[in-house]
Nucleic acid binder design. Structure first.
Lengths: 377, 377
DNA sequence: TCCACTTAAGCAACGCTGTTGCCAAAGTGC
DNA sequence: GCACTTTGGCAACAGCGTTGCTTAAGTGGA
């Protein structure tokens, strides 16, 4: 529980904390739903407390009863379910050459997707106009808005490649596009759309999206290999951004002291070695380099899973997964660990980034904001 | 706030959370103390709530009034202070060849220190007897116990080199000492001493000790270079242990693909390169290798400080700090960052480990347990 | 068909949290 | 000596989860 950034907690904060917890369990339970008593068991609260909390959530329209379970000798349990269309969020993925926009409901289901051509090198006003247009478009799409009331959109999450500050929503020097330096994207986009906006790095958004999938581990790393190489880290169930949203600079980790020069000015960076091998068609070597970096990460942070993604990986999924897994398994064997950390891929090409961007807005509702939590309205 | 591992919070949990928060602020304030209104400002609670909370803490003997500040035009503020001798903890550092035991008070001040010879390769019962003897010895030392009541010792924190599981208190294969494999050290030591016991890796203990010093950053890494090379990570103000207390395996990070073989069976590990250079007297090269690993870590986790420690570093402090700093500053310059992450040393040789071990017991009182929190009595 | 039993879920009273409104205490400065 | 400022506690209060009890809604044996 966190009461803004000070830490002191009062009764409203307590109520919000427990409501978020229940809401998160409802989200994870999905369409199948979950009974009040299971909620009580998972939260450690008394059944009566869960009854009160779920009653409030039902009154707010966020939860609903959905059938009953089979009796086990007494009154059957009533199943509760999240109401997916109680709220929506827009997710934007601003990549170098295209913009992907999705509309996600409260359950995390993508109900609309659109892609637009984009030149991230164009003037800011032009990019902003495209983004605002994309937001309007996906808001109008998806399932027909109910006749009673307009759909409630909580806000817009925007994910981009460059370094930026998540807290202030200000961009730093996006590689190759000097016009974005110190640009207050969050506030500008909020003004253009009239909605609250959250910005974050593309890899962080993707990692958050994966973390909110059911059965996600508490600690894992998402490695994104596209035109560059970056990582999103989930530690202790929450996104780790670091003090300056700089965490995840995975591409320029040195894995070959005094190795070949990299575009960043350093030598022996993973990105340089990996992309060079991939460029000359040696996927096995690219995977081996990536695996060495992944194994470093696994050892340093003791994570439970490595997820690979991005266009370059998508082109040779089996080779990359196999190559990375081989390095990790070999190192696990040396340490005498029985079960090596699993390596998987995040399907869907670049879509996980846009979907994760939408979760930047929705995650605070479920107490999954990560470090400094956003408040609910 | 965390109510055991379930997450649900009730009123006692709320009370405990706020009390811990206030207690932590009192601890950080040290002998200088802190006024009620400052506590209110830092916690975000109302002054009245702080009055109630501090009244309870005073009734329990954990806090006391200590003088007044100068008036600013009205009634002067009353200064509150932690009562250091309200409780103590024993910290044990079980190294390969010696055992260091300290007695720390609530404020973190070491009031007694003793070292004993130890052979970590000896049978478990022998090592345990030495440890229990060390605990009895430091409990009897320090400032004279007040005549009113015996000193209250909260428990024993034990730090050791090998891999282990912090949650269960069971050791894994401590390098070179197969008899410790699967040994339930926590329970065994608890039985021998009659006190609650917490065990953790030496580097984690040291990092925790540093994290509890006043003005410590929320994110930093402690790199320990002794007979081996390990790391303790503090992320978001809390110790990051990972799911299996395995985090901090820094020594066997690959920084030279296909480099020289390491004792672990791998190639190009930092530890092998670093210790090899140190062994042949090339401190500059050892520092450069260590710096490369440290820079990787800084980039990956976006931490605020790197702290060096351990016997090998202590022998050439300036050279190591300078060498590591040079690598980190060079990389920061390439990324266009104005202020590079500072590099410092943890003085006192190996003592920070034993002092940090005592903090393993005290930290939960201040809500600084890290991830899964221990409860107060 | 009926009745005893089991399990689920809500109502009412309660203890305790931090909050609010108010007032006494303890200074400064004219 | 008086007006003013600031601190900090007392008392009443709203609201949280908890406890004790009741009602709802099933199963299963006589």
């Amino acid at each position: 529980m966190s009461n803004s950034r000070t830490g002191g907690a009062n009764l409203p904060a307590l109520r919000h904390h427990n409501a978020s917890l229940v809401l998160d369990l409802l989200r994870v339970a999905g369409e199948q739903g979950i009974s009040r008593l299971e909620l009580a068991e998972h939260t450690g609260l008394t059944p009566q407390a869960v009854s009160k909390i779920t009653a409030r959530l039902r009154a707010e329209g966020l939860a609903a009863e959905a059938g009953r379970l089979a009796s086990t000798g007494g009154k059957p349990r009533t199943v509760l379910r999240l109401v997916p269309d109680a709220g929506y969020a827009v997710g934007l993925h601003l990549d170098r050459d295209e913009l992907t926009a999705v509309l996600a409901d409260l359950a995390g289901t993508t109900v609309a997707t659109r892609t637009f051509p984009l030149d991230l090198g164009a003037p800011a006003t032009e990019v902003l106009a495209t983004a605002a247009h994309a937001v309007r478009t996906v808001r109008a799409e998806g399932p027909q808005a109910t006749c009673t009331a307009a759909r409630h959109v909580f806000g817009v999450g925007a994910a981009l490649p460059g370094p930026l500050d998540h807290r202030s929503g200000v961009l730093h020097r996006v590689t190759g596009f000097p016009q974005w330096d110190r640009y207050p994207l969050r506030d500008a986009l909020a003004e253009h759309t009239g909605l609250p906006v959250v910005v974050d790095k593309d890899t962080n958004a993707a990692a958050l999206g994966l973390a909110l999938r059911d059965r996600a581990e508490a600690d894992f790393a998402y490695l994104h290999l596209g035109t560059g190489l970056g990582a999103g880290l989930v530690l202790g169930g929450a996104l780790h951004r670091g003090a300056r949203t700089g965490a995840g600079e995975f591409g320029h980790q040195t894995v070959q002291l005094d190795g070949p020069p990299c575009g960043c000015g350093g030598r022996g960076c993973i990105e340089a070695l990996c992309l060079e091998a991939a460029a000359r068609g040696d996927v096995a070597e690219a995977a081996r380099v990536l695996g060495a970096g992944a194994a470093n990460l696994v050892g340093l942070l003791d994570i439970d899973r490595v997820v690979l993604g991005g266009r370059t990986v998508a082109a040779h999924e089996a080779a990359y997964v196999g190559g990375v897994r081989a390095v990790i398994e070999e190192r696990a064997r040396r340490e005498g660990v029985t079960a090596a950390v699993p390596v998987t891929v995040a399907g869907g090409g670049d879509r996980p980034v846009a979907e994760g961007a939408a979760q930047l807005v929705l995650a605070p509702l479920f107490g999954r904001a990560g470090e400094d939590g956003g408040e609910r309205d």
